[in-house]
Design a protein around this nucleic acid. Structure first.
Lengths: 208, 208
DNA sequence: CTCTGTGAACATCTTCACAGCT
DNA sequence: AGCTGTGAAGATGTTCACAGAG
C-alpha cells in the first residue's frame, strides 16, 4: 500500500465517526458530499482520501456505510485490540485511565504505574495503580503495544528511553515537552499548553 | 504582517521552550542549528520560520536568546494574560484545572463549571466548581477570553453554541467529537482518542 | 441526472544552496 | 570561518473540472 499522509489518516478517523453515526441512524449509504459537510471539508477531498484504497463507492449513489467503515477500521488498525499501559497516575494519568473513548475504540488499559506511594494501590476505574518499580518486569511479561506517558516533563525523556529499551514501539506523550524517540519507535505528543498557545496566536492576530 | 502557517506557529512554540531552557542555562545566543537539533528539524526550516518576522539573527553568531524569546512571545500573544474558564469538572476538567503548564504560560483559570451537584462546590486546585447555571451570567461579567470544553461528547456542540453566543471567540475542545464553530470563532480540538488511532495506524502499517 | 474517481492545475510547505554580513 | 537570510527547486497536499458508471 502506498504512503498515506498524516492529514489523510486524521480525516479517515473523522469519517469513521460519521459513518458510525450514520449506522446508528440506520442509513446504508453516504455520499462524499455528506461526509464533507459533516467534517467541514470539500467533497473532492473526501473522494481523494477514500480513493487511496480503491474504488469503494458506487457512482450515482455513494458509499456503503458498513463496507466503508470496515475498510477504514482495517486501514487504521482498529480491527484488533491494543494493550495500553499508562505511566503516571496524577490527574492526567487518572483522567486517561477512565477515558471512555479509548475503550470504545479497542484500546484496553492493562496497567497504570506511579512512583508516589500515596497513589500506589489506588483503584482508577477498576485498574489498581502499581509501583513503577514493577514496570520493567511487566513490560516483559505483558508486552503491551502502547505506552501513554503522563509523568512530569522532566521525567518524560528518561521514561521514554526506558520503555523503548524494553521493546515498546508506540508511545503517546502527554508531558508538555518535546521528546526524542529512537528510530523504529512511533512517538506522538498531545501538548495541551501548545494548543492553547496556538489559540492565543490566532486570537492575537485576529485582533490586530 | 503576512500569514504564518499553523505548522510554523507550532514550531515557534517549541522554539520558545528551547530558548527558555537556554536562558535558564545562562546562554545568550543560539544558532539555527542548535534549535534544529533540539527540535528534530533542519536548520533551514528554523531560519525560514524565524525570517517571517525580520532579521533577528547575527550572521556568524546566531540569535540573541532574550530578544528572540521576547519576539516569539509577542507573536504568539503570550505577553498578556488570558482569562480561561473550564466547563466540565469531570476527570479531564479537573486535570486541566490543576495543569501547571497553563499558568506558566499566562493562561489563568478564572472559573470552572459543572451540572453535577456532587461536583459543585468542590475545590479544584483552589478554584471552586460553580453551578453551570451561573455560566451565562459569568460570561457577561467576567468576559473570559477562552473556554475549555471538557464535557461529554453529546453536550459539546450545544455548549459551544451557548458560549459563542455569549461572545467567546476562542475555544479549546477536549470532547472526542468534531464541532462546528460560527465564523469569527477560533476552535481547536484536542482529541486523544484520535491521536491513539493515528498511532494505531502507524504501528499497523509499520508491521505490514 | 447523480455522484464517484482521477488527471491536471494550483497552492502550500520544506529543503537546497549560496550570497553576504560579522 | 561561521551562520544568517532567501530565492529557487523540489515535495507534498488540496482543489478543480470533467469523463464515466449506475
Amino acid at each position: 500500500m502506498k504512503q498515506i499522509a498524516e492529514s489523510t489518516v486524521r480525516r479517515l478517523s473523522l469519517y469513521l465517526r460519521f459513518l458510525e453515526d450514520y449506522r446508528r441512524q440506520g442509513l446504508e449509504t453516504i455520499s462524499s458530499g455528506d461526509l464533507a459537510s459533516l467534517g467541514g471539508m470539500t467533497s473532492a477531498q473526501v473522494r481523494k482520501d477514500l480513493s487511496f484504497f480503491g474504488s469503494f463507492g458506487t457512482r450515482g449513489l455513494g458509499y456503503s456505510v458498513n463496507a466503508l467503515a470496515h475498510r477504514i477500521r482495517e486501514i487504521l488498525g482498529l480491527e484488533r485490540e491494543w494493550q495500553v499501559i499508562i505511566v503516571g497516575a496524577g490527574k492526567i494519568g487518572a483522567a486517561l485511565a477512565q477515558y471512555r473513548a479509548f475503550g470504545e475504540r479497542g484500546f484496553r488499559i492493562v496497567g497504570i504505574y506511579d512512583v508516589d506511594p500515596a497513589r500506589i494501590g489506588v483503584s482508577l476505574d477498576g485498574t489498581i495503580v502499581k509501583d513503577q518499580r514493577e514496570l520493567d518486569a511487566d513490560l516483559q511479561s505483558v508486552k503491551p503495544d502502547i505506552v501513554l506517558i503522563a509523568v512530569p516533563a522532566e521525567a518524560a525523556q528518561p521514561l521514554l528511553e526506558r520503555v523503548t529499551k524494553a521493546g515498546i514501539r508506540g508511545v503517546l506523550n502527554f508531558a508538555p515537552t518535546p521528546l526524542h524517540a529512537p528510530s523504529g519507535v512511533t512517538l506522538r505528543s498531545v501538548d495541551m499548553a501548545l494548543e492553547l498557545e496556538l489559540l492565543s496566536y490566532t486570537l492575537t492576530s485576529a485582533m490586530a
